[in-house]
Computed example of a mutant assay.
Amino acid sequence: MEQLGNADMKHAEDKPFYTASRNVLLGELSVSRFATTTGHYVRTRKHVANDRDDILVGYYRSPQPQLWTVGNQDLELKQGSVVAFNVAQPVSSFTDGLTAWNLASIPRAQILKLVPHAGNRSAMFLDPANPAVRHLERTINFLLDADEVCEDQGLARRAEAMLGDLIVLALGARGEVAEIAAERGLRAARQRELIAIIEKRFAEPSLSITTIADALNLSRRYVSDLLLESGATFSERVLELRLQKARAMLSDVRYDDTKVSDIAFACGFNEVTYFNRRFRGRLGCSPTQYRMGANHSDA
C-alpha cells in the first residue's frame, strides 16, 4: 500500500476476490497499474496522516463506473476518465465490480513549484484528448513493461525526467515551464512512439514517413528530425528491421519451403533484386547462400 496508502476496504461477499498490481519506482516518481474487486474504499484523516504527499494522475480503465467523494466534491469516474488528485487526503469510493487503474505519481511539493494551480482542487478531471495526457499514459504502460529501463541507471534518469515533464504538461503547466517540458518530455515521448510504430509496422511495404506523420498529425520534417535524433533515419531503421526479419525467416526450418521472393515480400520489400542487394551488403552473402549455411550449421 505504499503507493495508495492505508485504507478501510470492503469486498463484496458474493464475488470472487481478485487483485493484481505492479509498481515501478523512478527516483521520487513512480508508475503503477492495479486492478481489484474491492467495492468500498475509505481513507480517513487517520489513514492519510503519515502518507506521502503525492499528486497522482490516474487513468480509470474499468467498464464499471466508480463513485468518489473527495473534499467537497462528488465525482463519477467512467472508463476513459483521467483524474489528478492529492493522495494524502480523505476519500471514499464505491465500485460495483472490477476497479482498474494506470497511475503516475509525483511529490506534491515538486509539482507545485512548476504548476502552482495544480493544488487548487482536491481532484480535477483531465482531458484524455490532450496530447500530453495521452502520451503520459503511453509512457506509463511502456515503463511498466520495460524492465531494461530500471536495470540501467542512465535510462532510469532519462525516463524519470520524461515522466516528470509529461506530468507537468498534463497538469496544465504554462509559460516557460510548459515550453521546456514540451521540448524535453513530449518530444521524447513522441520519439519513442514513432519508433514503436516502425517496429510494429515495418513489414508494411507502404509504410513511409508521410503515412506515420499523417497518422499522428505531425509534420514530415518533425518526424524525420525525431528519428534522426534517435540515431537512425527512417530508411535505415526500416531496412534494418526488414533484414533482421528476413534473416530470422531464412534460418527457421518452418520456412524451408518458402521461396526467397515470398520471404522478401513478407518482410516488406517490394523488389527481390533490391532485397538481394541489401541482404548481401549487410550479411556478405545472398539470401540463398545464407539459408544453406544456416541449415548446414543446424545439421
Rank of each mutant, 00 (worst) to 15 (best):
R52P: 03
G119V: 09
S122H: 13
K113E: 14
N120I: 07
Q64P: 00
A196N: 10
G80F: 01
I180Q: 12
L243M: 10
M9E: 11
R192Y: 04
Q153R: 11
E137P: 03
I111K: 06
R138K: 15
E183A: 12
S206K: 15
S206E: 15
R282E: 15
N276G: 05
T211F: 04
A181V: 01
A84I: 03
L243E: 00
Y59M: 11
A182P: 01
C285F: 09
A248S: 13
Q73G: 04
L218G: 03
V70T: 13
R247G: 00
L103Y: 03
K15G: 04
L75N: 09
E236A: 09
N86A: 12
A299I: 06
Q3L: 14
R278D: 08
Q89W: 08
D147C: 00
D256I: 08
T210N: 12
E204S: 04
G5H: 02
E229F: 12
D298S: 10
L228G: 05
R291P: 09
L25R: 11
M249E: 00
A173H: 08
E13N: 10
A118V: 02
D262M: 10
I212K: 00
A84E: 03
R221N: 12
V223H: 03
R280N: 11
A215H: 11
R184M: 02
G293V: 08
R242K: 14
D54S: 10
Y18P: 01
S251R: 02
V223G: 02
F265W: 05
W101K: 09
E204T: 08
E148Q: 10
D225M: 13
N295C: 02
R138L: 14
L228M: 05
F269H: 01
E151K: 15
A294M: 14
A246D: 00
S224H: 12
P65A: 11
V70A: 12
L218W: 12
T95D: 05
N270W: 01
Q66F: 02
C285H: 03
L67S: 07
P131Q: 06
H296K: 14
S208P: 06
F279P: 07
A123C: 03
A182E: 13
E179Q: 12
L67E: 12
Q110L: 14
P90I: 12
G80D: 06
T288M: 11
A181R: 06
F34D: 15
A159K: 07
I111F: 05
H117E: 15
A203Q: 11
